[in-house]
């Protein structure tokens, strides 16, 4: 998968949230977005998911223009902002219902990913009784369960403890080896460096630098 971001801009009201961004992202890499709150990280992720209409420029995914040729990427797993599920259903039931939309992930696969993120697939506890960390883990499980070609994780380390971050790193490495293109953002630079291959620094909607972690 190749994502070509060609000089994109987005204005909301009078505010420019994305300002002439051009990037090329390729599969089998983990890209980390670095920037302050309100710098445009989440908006860039939303743009790549096809969730916003660009004021200028275009995004092509494997040559198909987003919001013109396709509405959303064909195979994408997302965790944007806080993970939200049906409050009265267990983690497993939530994911099973979500998986029924595409019909790709089997029940066995759902159990596997729930266990992989450190939750118990047999836990009958409803989602509303989950702690913040458990909710975050379930959000990650939902994003990866269909083995998407593009994985977008906004602040995936939120509310996760050190061992869970290590687990997340393993999950991302495995996905990367399978050829998944991963884009994630993090407040904590240390976590971002741990998880990413390349870091893209964003400030006031502009990309100010892009560098490989191994070079640091």
């Amino acid at each position: 998968m190749i994502i070509e971001i060609d000089n994109i801009s987005k204005q909301i009201g009078k505010q420019t949230v994305l300002d002439h961004i051009s990037l090329e992202l390729v599969s089998g890499r983990i890209y980390g977005l670095k920037g302050k709150n309100g710098s445009g990280k989440t908006m860039l992720m939303r743009a790549i998911c096809g969730l916003i209409r660009l004021t200028e420029g275009e995004i092509r995914i494997d040559g198909e223009c987003l919001r013109k040729d396709i509405s959303f990427p064909h195979s994408v797993g997302i965790l944007i902002e806080s993970p939200g599920f049906l409050n009265y259903d267990s983690g497993f039931r939530n994911l099973r219902q979500l998986a029924s939309i595409k019909g790709i992930a089997s029940e066995e696969r759902i159990r596997e990913v729930i266990a992989r993120v450190g939750l118990d697939p047999a836990d009958p506890k409803p989602f509303r009784k989950y702690s913040m960390g458990m909710k975050q883990k379930l959000g990650i499980a939902a994003a990866i369960m269909e083995e998407p070609a593009l994985l977008i994780l906004d602040e995936p380390t939120n509310a996760l403890d050190e061992s869970s971050i290590q687990k997340l790193k393993q999950i991302l490495q495995e996905a990367k080896e399978k050829g998944t293109l991963i884009l994630l953002s993090c407040h904590d630079t240390e976590d971002l460096l741990k998880l990413s291959d390349e870091v893209i620094e964003i400030q006031e909607g502009r990309v100010i630098s892009q560098w490989k972690v191994e070079q640091v």
């Binding site: 959303f72 064909h74 997302i78």
Partner: peptide
């Protein structure tokens, strides 16, 4: 949002 993205 999860449903929307999965709808393609």
């Amino acid at each position: 949002l999860q449903l929307l993205v999965r709808s393609e």
